[in-house]
């Protein structure tokens, strides 16, 4: 697969996911909606990180550096939610 074709396909996938997340927000999903929204957002972010930011070509170190912010943000949100949901 050539580089440009790959970028076009990734772009198309991103657009598809965008349509999906807008569509999903109109379905009567209730409390499941955030799960779906953020799962789609994570998929989009994964595509951007993996292909656009070229983490697929990197070693473990750069991948870890690229992910570190997200991992640490997960620490913050998880323990914060632990307080908020049981207060």
């Amino acid at each position: 697969m050539t580089a440009s074709l790959r970028l076009v396909l990734v772009w198309a996938a991103l657009m598809g996911l965008l349509a999906l997340t807008i569509g999903a927000s109109f379905l009567p999903l209730g409390p499941v909606l955030p799960v779906i929204s953020y799962a789609i957002a994570a998929a989009k972010a994964g595509l951007v990180l993996w292909f656009f930011m070229e983490l697929r070509e990197e070693g473990g170190l750069a991948r870890l550096a690229g992910m570190a912010g997200f991992i640490w943000l997960a620490f913050l949100l998880t323990l914060l939610a632990a307080d908020l949901t049981t207060r």
Binding site: T21, L33, P34, S37, Y38, A41, A45
Partner: peptide, 10 residues
């Protein structure tokens, strides 16, 4: 990508 569902799609 994360701001969009957080602010617009809840």
């Amino acid at each position: 990508i994360f701001l969009y569902p957080t602010l617009y799609l809840a």
